[in-house]
């Protein structure tokens, strides 16, 4: 018996990277596009913004959207569009950097703690428990008050609060993965601790950590707005979406655009990051591959098999009698 798998089904090299991702994950690609737009808007805010975000047009307080103020003005007569563009800087910067730093930190702590176990694990996890035992907002207030209000200190405060969440997930996954037969098999082939961590533990806990990351990102942006609202986040008048939201709430009946604009963008940003997180998770798992195109043999490469046909085809190539 020779293999019955059509050549197209398995094992050809194919484009990897962005192109493959766009083809396999249209939703994720859309999310990526949106995020790119947000980032560009933030970076190019000085170019794109029609007005200075801090400039007050005293005669146009709470002005409706018009040709001069495309998205209206706020209670101090500041241009909402300009503030939104500049606000993207603060919100995205704080959201992305906090999520990224606590993801890396929390995962590292969780993996090491979970894999080494015993004393190290007990000590590390009790410290994490202690951090999590304090209500998040109290801890945030405490750190923010000590460090003083600034965007950087907001990131530090939020990182301290969020890191234990990543630690939990990473540790739990590590405890599961270290029991997996493939880790035992790797040990039986003489793989040492660093190799097992890098090759087997980390890649296999990537999916849940990434998913948590996309959820946490939303929480961070919202937490940042809460901190700004309490006057200990990025200090006013620095524009941030959260700050705009909390200020705009007071005028919701007279000037609804004040909260519609930042909340729609906030929702879109959060939604995009969630979609991107999901798409990345699916994309990086060879078991969850979609039909289009061809396959590559790289670790993070794509392997695609016609859906539905895939299992039957692959298994159809049953074991051949020994060819000697």
């Amino acid at each position: 018996m020779t293999t019955t798998v059509p050549t197209s089904a398995v094992g050809r090299t194919a484009p990897t990277g962005l192109r493959a991702f766009v083809r396999a994950q249209p939703l994720g690609a859309t999310a990526l596009l949106l995020i790119t737009v947000f980032v560009l808007a933030a970076v190019l805010a000085p170019v794109l913004a029609p007005h200075d975000p801090l400039e007050q047009f005293r005669r146009d307080i709470l002005a409706e959207p018009s040709a001069q103020f495309l998205l209206g003005t706020d209670d101090l007569g500041r241009d909402v569009l300009s503030r939104t563009l500049y606000g993207a800087r603060t919100s995205l910067l704080i959201g992305v950097s906090t999520t990224a730093v606590s993801l890396v930190l929390g995962t590292a702590i969780g993996v090491v703690s979970g894999y080494l176990g015993r004393g190290v694990d007990v000590v590390v996890q009790r410290v994490m428990d202690a951090v999590q035992a304090v209500p998040g907002i109290v801890l945030l207030l405490f750190i923010a008050v000590i460090l003083g209000p600034s965007a950087r200190n907001t990131v530090i405060a939020l990182t301290v609060v969020i890191t234990p969440s990543f630690n939990r997930i990473a540790r739990a996954e590590t405890l599961r993965i270290r029991q997996e037969p493939y880790v035992e098999a790797a040990r039986a082939t003489g793989a040492g601790l660093p190799r097992i961590m890098a090759r087997h533990v980390l890649p296999n806990l990537f999916a849940p950590v990434l998913t948590l990351g996309s959820l946490i990102f939303a929480g961070v942006i919202i937490a940042e707005s809460a901190l700004s609202f309490l006057g200990i986040g990025a200090p006013p008048p620095t524009p941030s979406w959260g700050l705009m939201l909390s200020e705009g709430v007071r005028y919701v009946t007279r000037a609804p655009w004040l909260i519609i604009v930042p909340s729609v963008l906030l929702s879109l940003a959060v939604f995009s990051f969630n979609l991107l997180g999901d798409a990345l998770r699916d994309h990086l798992d060879p078991r969850l591959q979609r039909p289009v195109g061809e396959a590559s043999g790289r670790v993070w490469g794509r392997k695609r098999i016609p859906t539905g046909l895939a299992p039957s085809l692959a298994k159809a190539a049953e074991d051949e009698p020994d060819s000697r």
Binding site: E180, P181, Y182, E184, A185, A186, R199, H200, P203, N204, L284, D285, P286, R287, G297, V299
Partner: peptide, 8 residues
């Protein structure tokens, strides 16, 4: 289960 699902 003795083969790591993420690697060829």
């Amino acid at each position: 289960s003795s083969l790591d699902p993420l690697f060829t």
